[in-house]
Design a protein around this nucleic acid. Structure first.
Length: 461
DNA sequence: TTTTGAGTTGTTCGA
DNA sequence: GTCGAACAACTCAAA
């Protein structure tokens, strides 16, 4: 309830009806099957919200159906004088909001809050959207002072007596055919605040040196909270800023930089909704991605033979989360080593990530594939072995998600195929049966991709 | 209008 | 092991 801009805006009136519309596209058996981890997190967050509102003297009214049909109907029935909601940069949400506004007979106020600044406000001097990150970040830093978050209300007005619509119950996971996953982070504002607190106490001060370490808890793990609004970006920005006021400035600078990237991805998607279907760099339209179902299956199941890639792919399925660097390595591998269309990987991540944020996910995948916003061109091809050695130096991340390699000594943990037979035998890792050999050779795959990319981009340019 | 400096996260090779 | 250069030009954004 902290920093909830629509609720805060609505408190200016005498009566407030907190309403949540359960969209059957998202919360149904099919919808839940499409994104099980996110549904679990969302339902828990909804329960927490319901309890929170009740505690403050109000009630959450839950209705199931399409916003475009329900909102005009309910607004008329309840004789409300306005409707408030938070706007989103996500294209389908924008389209929904546009239709709702058209159909409502009262004003629809779309408030800010998804991002620190409204997505269309950070512009170049010639009033065009920024196309490179660093220029955006400079403009963001000078243009914006970040307002402190709005405090949670102490008390809410009770529901008006004529709101007699029976509230739907929040569906159970079982009713949606989803088995609860204990490894997925807990939803709700309270759990979110605990995560933020934990980050501030344990990791924030070392953020600049440990954020890339896949084996440590060096990151904030707040991506899902930012996606669902269980924490507002302002809350995260200012809380970490306050906590690091006496720390080395580098830690805060690097953390704020990550939040600024989030601003950039949302502003960019706001400006170019078609990015969900097309590459950022137009020269990449029509790139000859290849479709090999055997390679695809090996990647999604974590059987590529490259431990760090396999760990990342398995973490996604196990936790609904992947460490940022592991996302990059695994995305780079799928697109550049296996030549799979980044959109296929993007959809897979969107399906299973708790934090499935279209703006962030798309920008990340495009960057990894080489067709996104990046100063460095396509010839950066991550080496899955050296990346593992640098950012998972003891192999702990690999061992956590690829247990069949648990007994393999550190020296070979990121390249089991280079280990002597005796070592493999001792570790109980029969290559080819216990753990796969690499499905592609790194050097050959790298050269193949570079040749293909060079050829294609030249042709286009 | 032209010029200028700069561009998230890397890899490989050879000295 | 460590370090610097090459990778390849091009576009963006501001002066």
């Amino acid at each position: 309830m902290t920093d909830h801009v629509p609720l805060h805006g609505a408190l200016g009136g005498d009566e407030v009806i907190p309403l949540f519309v359960l969209d059957p596209n998202h919360v149904s058996e099919t919808g839940a099957h499409d994104h099980p981890h996110r549904v679990q997190f969302a339902l828990e967050s909804l329960h927490a919200l319901e309890a929170n509102l009740a505690h403050l003297g109000s009630r959450l009214v839950i209705v199931a159906g399409k916003s475009t049909e329900l909102l005009p109907k309910l607004a008329a029935q309840w004789k409300v004088d306005r409707v408030l909601a938070q706007r989103t940069a996500e294209p389908a949400g924008r389209e929904r909001d546009r239709k709702v506004r058209e159909l409502l007979h009262v004003p629809l106020t779309l408030t800010e809050g998804e991002t620190l600044q409204p997505p269309e406000t950070i512009r170049t001097q010639s009033d065009t959207p920024f196309l490179v990150y660093s220029a955006f970040a400079r403009a963001f830093a000078t243009a914006s002072s970040i307002d402190p978050p709005l405090a949670a209300p102490k008390r809410l007005p009770p529901l008006p007596p004529d709101v007699t619509t029976p509230s739907s119950a929040i569906p159970t996971l079982e009713s949606l055919g989803v088995v609860r996953n204990e490894r997925v982070i807990v939803g709700g504002e309270k759990a979110a605040r605990q995560r933020l607190q934990r980050f501030v106490e344990r990791a924030a001060r070392q953020y600049h040196v440990q954020r890339d370490r896949m084996d440590l808890e060096g990151t904030s793990r707040l991506s899902a909270d930012l996606r669902f609004g269980t924490l507002s970006p302002r809350t995260v920005w200012t809380t970490v800023q306050r906590a690091l006021s006496d720390a080395a400035p580098e830690a805060l600078r690097v953390f704020h930089n990550e939040l600024t990237w989030r601003e950039f991805t949302h502003a960019t998607l706001w400006d170019r909704p078609e990015l969900l279907h097309e590459p950022f760099q137009r020269a990449w339209v029509g790139f000859p991605w290849q479709h090999d179902d055997a390679l695809w299956q090996a990647w999604i199941e974590g059987r590529t033979g490259y431990p760090i890639v396999d760990a990342a792919c398995r973490q996604l399925m196990i936790e609904g989360f992947v460490h940022n660097r592991a996302r990059m390595i695994s995305a780079s591998f799928l697109t550049k080593h296996l030549l799979c269309d980044y959109r296929r990987g993007e959809a897979h991540y969107l399906r299973f990530l708790v934090d499935g944020d279209r703006a962030q996910n798309n920008a990340g995948w495009q960057w990894s594939a080489g067709c996104g916003c990046d100063a460095q061109p396509y010839f950066r091809v991550f080496n899955p072995v050296t990346q593992g050695q640098r950012f998972d130096p003891n192999g702990d991340y690999v061992r956590r998600f690829v247990p069949e390699l648990a007994q393999l000594p550190n020296k070979w943990i990121h390249a089991p195929w280079t280990a002597p037979e005796a070592v493999l035998k001792q570790a109980g890792v029969p290559l080819g049966t216990g753990y796969p050999r690499p499905i592609v050779d790194h050097k050959a795959a790298r050269e193949r991709f570079l040749a293909l990319a060079t050829q294609h981009v030249k042709q286009k340019g």
